[in-house]
C-alpha cells in the first residue's frame, strides 16, 4: 500500500517538474518583446473594437499609436478628444483637438413622400438591392430601407422606423465611428460636426436627378433650384449636379435657407421652435427622435433577416 502511495507521489511530482521545465523553456524561447506602452494605450482606448479608426480593433490602433511619430493622422472617433488626449499623455506626444462628429441621415424619403412603384422581393440586404436596381421608388439615389446601416452600427445608435421605413440615428449614442457610412451602398449617411449646442443645418437629400423627375419621385427632394444658394450670405452653400450642399464649417446657423427651400429638403436640428412654422407638420414629426420601443424594433429587425 505504502509503495503505491509513494510511487504515485513520485510520478506525479516528476511529471509536474518536467512540464514546468518545458513550459519555462518555451516561454523563454518564444518570448516576444512588446512595448509596455501598447498596453497602457490600449487601456486608455474605449475597447469597442469598432474599427472606426481604420484599424481592425483597439489593439492594432494602440500599436499604430505607439509606432507613429505623430498622432495627427490617428484618431479614435469613438473616444473623441478626451481619449486622444489620454493617449497623447501616455506617449508624451501632442495631439490637436478635433471637432466632434455625428452621423447624419441625408434622405427624408419616407413612405408618405415617396411612392413605391415596384416591389422588391429578394434577400433583405441593401447592397444586393442596390446592385439589382434603383429601388422600389422612382428615386434611384434614396434610402432603400433594408437597414444595412442599422446592422453595421456597433453602438445601438440606429434603428429602423417601421412607419417611414428609414433608419433613425440616435444622436446621443452615435460615436461617429463611420461604420454606417461605409455600410450604406447609396452613400446617404454623412459624418458632420456636431456643431454648437448640437445645432445643425443640412440638406437631407442626395438626389442628383434633375428637378422634374426628382420632384415627381419624391416630394421632399432637393431639386437644385438654387434659392438657398441665393439666400446664403456666407458662401456656405454649393450647388453641384442639381444638389445643394451646406458646408458645415462656413455655415453660421442663420436658418434663412431653411425658410426658402420650396421642398423642405433643408433640415434644422436642435433649434428652438419657430414662432411661425415654415415647414410642413410631418417634418418636425420626423426630426424628433421617438421614444424607442426596443423590443418592437428588435422584432421588426429580426423579422427582416
Amino acid at each position: 500500500m505504502n509503495g503505491v502511495v509513494i510511487a504515485t507521489i513520485i510520478t506525479i511530482s516528476s511529471v509536474g517538474i518536467i512540464a514546468a521545465i518545458i513550459l519555462y523553456w518555451a516561454s523563454q524561447k518564444f518570448k516576444v518583446f512588446e512595448d509596455p506602452r501598447i498596453d497602457e494605450v490600449e487601456d486608455a482606448l474605449p475597447s469597442a473594437n469598432c474599427g472606426g479608426c481604420g484599424f481592425p480593433g483597439c489593439r492594432p490602433f494602440a500599436e499604430a499609436c505607439v509606432k507613429a511619430d505623430d498622432l495627427e493622422d490617428l484618431d479614435c472617433p469613438v473616444g473623441g478628444n478626451e481619449t486622444m488626449m489620454a493617449v497623447a499623455k501616455v506617449l508624451g506626444k501632442k495631439v490637436s483637438e478635433k471637432a466632434k462628429m455625428v452621423a447624419v441621415m441625408k434622405c427624408n424619403g419616407a413612405t408618405q413622400f415617396r411612392k413605391k412603384h415596384t416591389e422588391y422581393d429578394g434577400a433583405l440586404n441593401c447592397t444586393i438591392q442596390h446592385n439589382l436596381y434603383g429601388g422600389e421608388t422612382a428615386c434611384q439615389y434614396g434610402c432603400l430601407g433594408l437597414g444595412e446601416c442599422v446592422d453595421a452600427c456597433g453602438f445601438d445608435a440606429m434603428y429602423m422606423d417601421p412607419e417611414t421605413e428609414l433608419p433613425v440615428i440616435i444622436e446621443d449614442m452615435c460615436t461617429a465611428c463611420g461604420a454606417c457610412v461605409e455600410a450604406c451602398p447609396k452613400d446617404i449617411i454623412e459624418l458632420r460636426p456636431v456643431g454648437k449646442k448640437s445645432k445643425r443645418i443640412f440638406v437631407s437629400c442626395v438626389s442628383h436627378e434633375k428637378a422634374g423627375p426628382s420632384k415627381k419621385a419624391c416630394s421632399v427632394a432637393c431639386i437644385g433650384c438654387g434659392l438657398c444658394f441665393k439666400e446664403c450670405k456666407y458662401d456656405a452653400i454649393k450647388i453641384e449636379n442639381v444638389l445643394a450642399y451646406i458646408d458645415p464649417i462656413k455655415c453660421v446657423l442663420c436658418r434663412k435657407c431653411v425658410v426658402v427651400c420650396p421642398t423642405s429638403a433643408i433640415w434644422e436640428v436642435n433649434f428652438p421652435a419657430r414662432k411661425v412654422k415654415p415647414t410642413i407638420e410631418e417634418k418636425t414629426k420626423l426630426t424628433e427622435i421617438k421614444e424607442i420601443d426596443l423590443i418592437k424594433t428588435a422584432k421588426v429587425n429580426s423579422k427582416k433577416r
Binding site: 413605391k116 412603384h117 415596384t118 416591389e119 422588391y120 422581393d121 429578394g122 439589382l132 436596381y133
Partner: peptide, 9 residues
C-alpha cells in the same frame, strides 16, 4: 396601378 415585382435571378 400594376406594381411589378423585382428580384434577382
Amino acid at each position: 396601378m400594376l406594381k411589378l415585382i423585382v428580384s434577382l435571378s
